[in-house]
């Protein structure tokens, strides 16, 4: 006789296909957007999906690997500038330059990590920020890329994507959607893998993880380099959409790190659902209240402080126990005993 034991927060295995079907339906619906939505809402969604991906990556680093970086703008900017350099200086078609930009960011992240990983805790956080500033100042010196005032992508190169603006927007939309889905999917798969188990252990207690044989330094380095690479790809995509890049915007700590941290913290650090909810909330708040000017910023700040004081696990930590459901379950059930 098999006994069914009620396990909190765990659904029967049979729910998985249903869940995947729902997720697939959402992705398909998102993919159809360029066919019927206006250019404006399409661009808003591109921005949203970019932030979802950035938030997932930052959460992977800070929420799991314990790497609190406030210098991810280094790789957004690096990716963007790699794309513009390749396109403008070498005539590489922008769409081809996208993956190269990610690759370059990952390669540069390696020596960057060797410097940054000598620091720990708050020093690591500040160190990553300083490194990003060094990159910003570096690119401001390059005259061929417009120096401090930046440069636009020449029309001729833009037209290699498509002569028509609508088609171009749609292509960028689909690439962004694919990137966003891939980031979430890969992180979900990672968390269900052996490495994900080690990362979750680092998240909860790094000293204990190390003592149980998890080589924390190597795992963290891998996470850092991979996140930098994907962030670089996203950076290239961001500036391909903007068609213009400047050091101030490309290496903006506010746009590419502070807002991302806000989303992750509000939504719930250390889960896949949290950053997603945080992004949704942020975009809803911004669309509703951004014309309140500085009061809007005061509100966002107050919300962050309140979250950190009263719900350190973010919104998801308040929701999850009540509904007993995980959109992206990662827990491994103990093997059933023969009864």
């Amino acid at each position: 006789m098999t006994m069914t034991v009620a396990m909190p927060g765990r659904l029967p295995r049979s729910v998985m296909p249903v869940r995947l079907a729902i997720l697939a339906a959402v992705v398909l619906a998102m993919a159809s957007v360029p066919l019927w939505a206006s250019g404006g809402s399409q661009r808003l969604l591109v921005e949203f999906m970019t932030y979802v991906a950035l938030a997932q990556l930052w959460n992977l680093m800070a929420g799991y690997a314990g790497l609190i970086s406030i210098g991810q703008q280094a790789f957004v900017g690096l990716g963007g500038y790699t794309l513009f350099s390749l396109a403008i200086l070498a005539g590489v078609p922008p769409l081809l330059a996208l993956p190269v930009a990610g690759f370059v960011a990952a390669i540069v992240a390696w020596p960057t990590a060797l410097v940054a990983f000598r620091l720990s805790g708050p020093y690591f956080a500040i160190g990553t920020w300083v490194i990003a500033e060094v990159y910003r100042l570096g690119f401001a010196q390059v005259g061929a890329l417009g120096g401090g005032s930046g440069i636009s992508l020449p029309v001729g190169l833009v037209k290699t994507i498509s002569a028509d603006r609508g088609t171009r927007d749609s292509i960028i939309y689909w690439i962004t959607l694919a990137a966003c889905v891939a980031v979430i999917g890969c992180i979900w798969a990672l968390m269900r893998s052996r490495l994900g188990l080690g990362l979750a252990a680092i998240r909860d207690d790094e000293v204990a993880a190390e003592s149980a044989g998890v080589v924390t330094r190597r795992l963290k380095l891998q996470v850092y380099v991979i996140c930098a690479g994907v962030t670089g790809f996203l950076g290239a995509l961001i500036f391909l959409q903007k068609l213009r890049i400047s050091p101030e915007v490309a290496f903006s700590v506010n746009d590419w790190t502070v807002l991302v941290i806000f989303m992750v913290v509000i939504g719930g650090i250390g889960s896949i659902e949290g950053p997603l909810i945080g992004c949704l909330l942020f975009f809803v708040l911004r669309e509703q209240f951004s014309d309140w000017g500085s009061w809007y910023m005061v509100g966002l700040g107050a919300l962050s402080v309140a979250t950190m004081l009263f719900a350190r696990g973010g919104l998801w930590s308040l929701i999850a126990p009540r509904i007993g459901f995980r959109l992206f379950p990662v827990a491994r059930a103990a093997p059933r005993r023969p009864s």
Binding site: R194, L197, G198, A200, A201, R203, D204, D205, V207, A208, A209, S211, A212, G213, V214, V215, G270, A331, R332, A333, A334
Partner: peptide
Amino acid sequence: FQIPRPWVGLTVYENLLVAAEFGAG
């Protein structure tokens, strides 16, 4: 550890899995 350091976000079984997967050498 004298003061227990469980991985609180993982289940009890997963706590053992981490040790088994990574610690066996």
